[in-house]
Structure formats: C-alpha cells, structure tokens
Measured scan of single mutants.
Amino acid sequence: VNVKKLKVSELKEELKKRRLSDKGLKAELMERLQAALDDEE
C-alpha cells in the first residue's frame, strides 16, 4: 500500500481494518498507517 497515494477515506478504511484510530488530520492518518505497515513487514 502506498500511503501517500491514498485518499483520506481510504486511509480511514485501512486503519479500521487494523483496528486503529481513524481520527485526526490526513498527515496523522498517514503516519499511523505507515507505522502499522512498517510493523507488519
């Protein structure tokens, strides 16, 4: 998943799939999702 190419709605969906908070600004969502993806690898 390329975090930078996702829309806010898509970021929120990806975060929900991982049971993460989907609250906050786009930058925060991107950071949170990227951290989750880094952990998965």
Rank of each mutant, 00 (worst) to 15 (best):
L15G: 02
E40A: 09
L29D: 09
E40C: 04
S9M: 08
E31S: 10
V8F: 09
M30W: 01
S21M: 02
K4R: 12
S9I: 12
S21H: 05
K17E: 05
R19A: 13
K23R: 14
L15K: 00
L29G: 11
L11H: 00
E10F: 01
S21T: 08
V1H: 00
K26G: 08
A35E: 13
A35R: 13
L15A: 02
K23Y: 06
A27S: 12
K7I: 04
L25S: 15
R19M: 14
L25E: 15
L6V: 04
M30K: 08
D39A: 14
K17D: 03
L37I: 09
K5S: 13
L33G: 08
K16M: 12
N2D: 13
N2L: 08
L20D: 03
L29K: 08
L33W: 00
L29P: 12
K17F: 03
Q34R: 11
M30Y: 02
D38Y: 09
V3K: 03
R18K: 04
A27Y: 02
R18L: 06
D39K: 12
E31K: 15
S21G: 05
E41Y: 05
L25C: 15
A36T: 08
D22N: 06
M30T: 05
K17W: 02
S21V: 05
L11S: 04
K5H: 14
E31M: 15
E13H: 08
E10R: 04
E10M: 04
A27T: 13
E40R: 06
G24I: 03
E10C: 05
D38H: 06
A36N: 08
V3F: 07
L11W: 00
L25A: 15
K17N: 07
E28P: 02
S9E: 14
R19F: 03
L33N: 02
K7C: 12
A27H: 13
E13P: 00
E40Q: 12
A27R: 15
K23D: 14
S9Y: 09
Q34G: 10
L20F: 00
K23W: 11
M30F: 01
V8R: 07
E31L: 06
R19K: 12
A35K: 09
L11V: 08
A35G: 13
K4N: 10
L6P: 01
K16Q: 13
D38A: 15
R19V: 07
E10D: 10
D22Q: 12
L15T: 01
V1R: 07
A35F: 04
V3I: 07
Q34A: 11
D39I: 07
S9W: 12
L6G: 01
S9R: 11
K17L: 10
V8M: 13
Q34Y: 02
K12L: 10
L15M: 01
E40L: 01
V1D: 02
K16R: 14
V1W: 05
S9L: 05
E41A: 14
L37T: 09
L33R: 06
D22F: 09
K4W: 13
K16E: 10
V8N: 01
K26R: 14
E10H: 04
E40I: 15
L37C: 10
A35D: 11
A35H: 10
K23C: 14
A27I: 11
G24T: 00
S21C: 07
N2G: 08
E10N: 09
N2E: 11
L11T: 00
D38W: 04
K5W: 05
K26E: 15
E41T: 15
L11K: 01
L6H: 00
A36I: 03
L15Q: 03
L6Y: 06
K26L: 11
L37F: 10
A27F: 02
L25R: 15
E40H: 06
D38L: 04
L33V: 06
L20Q: 07
R18C: 02
K23L: 14
K5Q: 11
L25I: 10
A35C: 09
E14L: 07
V3D: 06
K7M: 11
A27C: 09
D38N: 04
V8L: 10
L15N: 00
L25G: 15
A27P: 14
K12C: 03
A36G: 05
D22V: 14
N2C: 09
L20A: 03
K26C: 08
E13K: 03
L37Q: 08
S9H: 06
M30L: 05
E28H: 04
L11N: 01
L37W: 08
L11A: 03
L6C: 00
S21K: 05
S21Y: 02
D38Q: 08
E10L: 04
E14D: 02
L15H: 00
L20P: 00
V3S: 03
M30H: 02
D38P: 05
R19I: 02
G24K: 01
G24W: 00
A36M: 03
K23N: 15
L11C: 00
L20T: 02
A36S: 04
K17R: 13
R18P: 00
K4V: 08
L29Y: 00
E13G: 08
L11F: 01
L33I: 01
R18H: 00
R18G: 02
L20V: 04
K26F: 06
V8D: 12
V3Q: 03
A36F: 10
K17Y: 01
E31C: 13
K23P: 03
E28N: 09
M30D: 03
L15C: 01
L6D: 01
E31F: 10
R19H: 13
K23T: 15
R19Q: 13
E14W: 02
R19T: 13
E40D: 09
